[in-house]
Nucleic acid binder design. Structure first.
Length: 321
DNA sequence: AAGGCGGGGGT
DNA sequence: ACCCCAGCCTT
């Protein structure tokens, strides 16, 4: 009788090792506590889209205290969400995290829905976030693939230093194939993510601490260099920087801001106002310090209005009501 | 498939 | 200085 080819890799071994490592090494994050609501998990997932855990923690605590259920946030103006978002970055996420509860109230009786398809239909919820909420909040056997998971799979199974620039169908197929039975799905999803975040990091992986070091294809291959160089995002001088500075002004403002102040056509001293640190005046000076052109300032303000991150209010501009 | 969209801490 | 982070949406 011919010997069947050994499955490569031994998924069962990986499941046990990573689950054991996770139980012993997982960070105590509040959205992982057993009593955390699906809403709390959903808020964490929105905030964690491209923002590291350490910066999310304090803002998440404030949001959950202020808006303990989706309906509480849905009842507020969008601008309150944008203001409470603070400096987490990508403030469009705050708009979406404000719009999602409206859809939850409208379509799901105020309760975060529990299926992948229902979640995917919510504003700001893509394939990753839908799978993550379904898995972590509802223990649904969905396949969660984020940047950490992709990197772990690339190394452990594919022998590559880094995953491809964008998620491919082949990667998703591999991720599905590696999933354990539904009993272990949640721990597997969370465990692989945590392994990528704490040990199998992008820059300097802690291979000596890895629970699956002996099974790693990348280590077996001698840890080859990445086959491509990730393209970094420019920052200085970009519209994103200017938009961010304008949003910082609007968050600090307690009244509509005259557009001439944002566009730089009025002298700040002549405009008066409080000069103390931390106020709107300080944020305006930071905006001016970018030395953006009139065209760029105008383009950025128009963009913020277009995006709904700001709106006209009387003679000025303010966060959306 | 590619590009826009924040911001800060680690290296 | 540069890199990276629990991505999503539009073109």
């Amino acid at each position: 009788m011919p010997k069947p080819p050994a499955p490569a890799p031994d998924a069962g071994l990986l499941h046990g090792r990573i689950a054991g490592w996770f139980e012993a090494n997982a960070r105590p994050l509040p959205w992982r506590e057993p009593d955390c609501s699906p809403w709390g998990i959903m808020v964490s997932e929105f905030m964690l889209q491209q923002t590291p855990v350490a910066r999310v923690l304090p803002v998440w605590e404030q949001w959950l205290q202020r808006w303990p259920v989706p309906a509480a946030l849905a009842a507020e103006p969008a601008g309150e969400a944008v203001r409470a978002w603070g400096r987490l970055g990508y403030p469009r996420r705050a708009l979406r995290l404000h719009a999602a509860p409206a859809a939850i109230v409208e379509d799901h009786g105020g309760e975060v829905p529990g299926t992948y398809a229902q979640l995917l239909a919510l504003p700001g919820v893509g394939t990753y976030t839908a799978a993550a909420i379904a898995s972590f909040a509802f223990d649904a056997p969905e396949t969660v693939v984020d940047t950490n998971v992709r990197r772990v799979h690339a190394r452990l199974v594919s022998g590559q230093a880094l995953p491809s620039p964008s998620l491919t169908a082949k990667e998703m197929k591999l991720a599905h194939a590696l999933m354990p039975g539904s009993d272990g799905a949640k721990i597997w999803n969370a465990g692989v993510m945590e392994l990528g975040a704490l040990v199998c990091t992008a820059r300097s992986p802690g291979c000596p601490q890895c629970p699956v070091l002996d099974a790693c294809a990348w280590v077996a291959a001698g840890r080859p260099e990445p086959s491509y160089v990730p393209k970094g995002q420019a920052w200085a001088g970009t519209d994103r920087q200017v938009r961010g500075a304008m949003m910082a002004v609007l968050r600090k403002a307690t009244a509509p801001v005259l557009p001439q102040l944002l566009l730089g056509s009025v002298d700040l001293v002549a405009a008066g106002g409080p000069a103390g640190p931390g106020g709107i005046h300080a944020e305006l000076r930071r905006l001016r310090a970018l030395d953006a052109s009139d065209e760029q300032l105008s383009r950025c303000l128009d963009g913020l209005l277009e995006d709904g991150l700001a709106e006209a209010s009387g003679a000025g501009v303010a966060l959306p009501a």
